[in-house]
Amino acid sequence: MDTTIDVKSFAPNGKQNGYNGKAKMINRKIKYESELSSDFKETIAELAHGEKLYGCIQCGTCSATCPVSHYMDYTPRKIIQMVREGFRDDVLKSSTVWLCASCYSCTVECPKGIKITDVMYALKREAISAGYFPKRFPTPVLAENFFAQVLNNGRNSEGPLLMKMYMKTNPFNALKNTMLAFRLWKTGRLTLKTEHTKDRKSLKKLLGSIDKQKEALAK
């Protein structure tokens, strides 16, 4: 009985999970240790400036106090456990991190002082750098466009920002909100003009210097 099993043949995307082709009806859920990333928790703990997540007691206060946990595919509590146990791919592909609205309820309520919102930020950064986030999901698109806009102009311009985001994710939504945009424009609360700081060079220099220092550090 020493036959080695090829773990990949059991992989969840394999067709053999199916039941007459209806793969969704019966799903195989099992995790092999070899599929996990043992250093994931250290990576995230470092990125989130907190090793306190190691001390999570899985009480679920974060999930219960979270205003959007009922939309997430894994509740925040589960995410913490998955991070600790190295479920890297599942965590980075989850909708949870992108649904976090950064309201900080969990951070305030956590009885073990875990800065869960910061963990979510760390996961967002890790997901972006791993190229893992869901493609047409608006939040990462918004984040990236926002980032680019501030980099170039120093300020964010809400009108152009939202336009871009809707066009990239769901153009239908932009149409749905034309009335809203019109009313905002009419009340002087929205322009399509791009805002920017007078001195755009200084900000570029600042961010350029950060890049240079990071490169030096990497070497």
Partner: peptide
């Protein structure tokens, strides 16, 4: 009472 039933994973 708002609570996560952690054994089920549902709030």
């Amino acid at each position: 009472i708002r609570v996560e039933d952690t054994l089920i994973g549902v709030v």
